[in-house]
Design a binder for these strands. Structure first.
Lengths: 195, 195
DNA sequence: ACCCTTAATCAACAGACCGTCCATAAGAGA
DNA sequence: TCTCTTATGGACGGTCTGTTGATTAAGGGT
């Protein structure tokens, strides 16, 4: 239903949930807490969600779908340019969505949130990279003594680390600044940060 | 107490806890579960721990202390060699401890474990790197357009990513192999994994 | 082998939250 | 205005919690 009161109630639940994840952690919060904080009856919660886990899953799925959309919209990326394996356009789009849904995403990604969420996002990012590599006739994930799996994780981890820090710092920088940092970081070996 | 039965009971609790974290996740497991699985009376649990959170914290602290010890024992590292900012010796020592305490660490780091644990470990690793940089007269974390904070996180993330994957793959490789991979990864920019 | 300390067991307690139900009130839409 | 949907409020039995008190079992010291 896109009923007015339904929308209002669901928004209140999402807002309360985000607050509570930040405040007392996903583990500790209860359905009673959510209802109390959202200012709704506990029974009303159960009209919309099966339980706490269902709420978490629905909210996460919505966010991941939106992120997926943006990550995979990178039409004008050059298939054979290694730099475009992680298209600026796609990263920026995703970061802009993060900014729009900041309260929830910060909470769920944060230290008291759900570890699995970032794991699933990492998976999406990996798929995008795989897709870009597949599009190219010349590029592939080379080994350099690294099992393919490990190489991929190392590639992903830097991107996710930057995004996580951005979130925990409160999103001070603009999505453009972060996208640029991610872009630049791809060209630097860890030791090059030392001089 | 180092009483025989105390030691036996605590071991049973830790083992049961690790199993249950792996199986149903840290969120969902209860003290009743732990007691049942460990084959002890629920009351006995409360003779040793305040509650589930206390158990988690005690086990995590023990592990982090042991890791800290090994990370900070790197006497023969060259202060002015950038490569020794992350001394092979220290990394290997830490990985060997992980192998010893594998069941627990895999569970707590895993997708249904405690996100905060890795966060704290990341902090320790960061401190070690800061300490090594401080020892040197010539080295420092340079910017290259990166805020210091972001540079540090990118440095850390690759190391942690490799360790996480090692854990989730069941620790097939030896600590030496992983330590070598971490060592080598420091010299490669993400795009160099593509050819 | 003995006693005595310490740990583990068992049963019972009130309190919190759970998931469900039903009767009632409020409100949105035609 | 009338109707259909959503929200409310209260009550149910059930599970888990943290604590207590009485009892049994095991360990260590001499």
């Amino acid at each position: 239903m896109t009923n007015r009161s339904t929308v209002r109630t669901k928004k209140a639940i999402k807002h309360a949930f985000s607050e509570l994840v930040e405040e007392k952690g996903l583990d500790s919060l209860t359905v009673s807490d959510v209802a109390r904080t959202a200012g709704i009856n506990r029974g009303t919660f159960y009209l919309h969600y099966v339980d706490k886990d269902d709420l978490k899953n629905q909210l996460e799925s919505e966010a991941l779908e939106s992120l997926q959309e943006r990550l995979f919209s990178n039409e004008n990326a050059d298939p054979d340019d290694p730099v475009d394996v992680i298209p600026y356009e796609a990263i920026l789009g995703a970061l802009e969505y993060v900014q729009d849904d900041f309260e929830f995403i910060r909470a769920i990604v944060g230290p008291r949130g759900d570890h699995a969420f970032l794991g699933r996002f990492r998976g999406q990012l990996g798929q995008m990279i795989e897709k870009q590599i597949a599009k190219s006739s010349t590029l592939r994930l080379s080994m350099k003594g690294f099992p393919r799996e490990y190489a991929m994780q190392v590639m992903l981890s830097g991107i996710v680390a930057i995004t996580e820090l951005w979130l925990s710092n409160g999103g001070k920088e603009s999505p453009e600044e972060i996208a640029t940092m991610i872009h630049e970081s791809r060209k630097l070996a860890p030791y090059e940060f030392l001089k």
